[in-house]
């Protein structure tokens, strides 16, 4: 049964609506982190060393007495900011290059795809790792580096979608009626690749969140920011003193984020992609 209400026109599927609601809920929690907890995430000494979850420290504290609950709320914010912004950067590059490459073909296509091949031939995480070491690991740099190194794969997907969309009869019809290349790209091709682009974008968010977590786990994250990955790195020591909570809660949040954005991607593809309908 399709859902009712004003949003039903845009989100015509209950499961997708639930996932979108969950993502929005997490985003709101992250945005309101400073209001939900009045503690400072990176301040040490709230408690004396490692303490298990209790009413005043719902997720416990780490070995330096930092409040893990507050850390996780702020870490969620970092993850979402990095995930969404670097996915936006990567997707923007991918859309422009993929569109040019697929639509015009010829030397543009060759150039773009060979550059993409170069990027794809080196594991992305290694590239990002070196780039972050090379520049200072600030939040902005991490976002830029992840964004700038993540476009080749989505660009290839966009290109192949454009290739199939531009050979449709209605594109020939639009051209015959005097549509220019730009008109065709925006009015005829863009609406057809939008569902795929959205789905790929959601997947990129989840990829970027994982990369950021991995970077900060390795100690290459922004040292001034509480990140979920960095708490996992702290938990490596806590776990030997029986501090399972330092490992458990950040992990749960990372897993929930990754699962949500993967679900989002799958459902977008399923609900909006006309070929699967």
């Amino acid at each position: 049964m399709p859902p009712k209400g004003p949003l039903a026109k845009y989100i015509p599927d209950r499961r997708l609506a639930a996932v979108v609601a969950a993502v929005l809920f997490l985003a709101i929690i992250a945005a309101l982190a400073s209001y939900i907890s009045d503690k400072d995430p990176i301040r040490t000494g709230y408690a004396r060393g490692l303490t298990p979850p209790s009413p005043s420290f719902p997720f416990g504290t780490d070995q330096l007495g930092r409040d893990i609950f507050t850390w996780v709320l702020h870490g969620l914010r970092v993850s979402l900011i990095v995930g969404v912004s670097s996915a936006l950067i990567a997707m923007s590059i991918a859309l422009v290059l993929g569109m040019l490459s697929g639509y015009f073909g010829g030397w543009i296509d060759n150039l773009v795809m060979r550059v993409a091949d170069v990027f794809l031939s080196i594991p992305r995480f290694i590239l990002i790792l070196f780039a972050v070491i090379l520049f200072s690991p600030t939040l902005l740099n991490i976002v830029l580096v992840i964004g700038l190194f993540s476009w080749p794969e989505p660009a290839r997907i966009v290109r192949s979608e454009v290739l199939s969309a531009k050979s449709r009869e209605y594109v020939l019809a639009a051209r015959s009626m005097g549509a220019s290349d730009l008109d065709i790209m925006f009015s005829e091709i863009a609406p057809n690749i939008a569902p795929t682009a959205l789905a790929v974008g959601a997947l990129l968010v989840s990829d970027s969140i994982l990369i950021e977590a991995a970077l900060s786990f390795l100690g290459l994250g922004d040292p001034d920011l509480p990140s979920l990955g960095r708490m996992l790195s702290i938990a490596r020591q806590a776990i030997f003193a029986g501090g399972w909570w330092a490992l458990l809660f950040p992990s749960i949040f990372i897993i929930v984020l990754i699962v949500l954005f993967n679900l989002l991607s799958d459902l977008i593809n399923e609900v909006y992609n006309p070929r699967l309908r």
Partner: peptide
């Protein structure tokens, strides 16, 4: 094209973009 010389094709359902309403199709041209 479209303004001086126009064209109508064989199968209207494949020559009209399925993702645009009829109003959009007019507005595009």
């Amino acid at each position: 094209r479209g303004r001086e010389i126009s064209i109508v094709f064989q199968d209207p359902l494949s020559y009209l973009n399925p993702l645009r309403t009829v109003r959009d199709l007019f507005m595009d041209v």
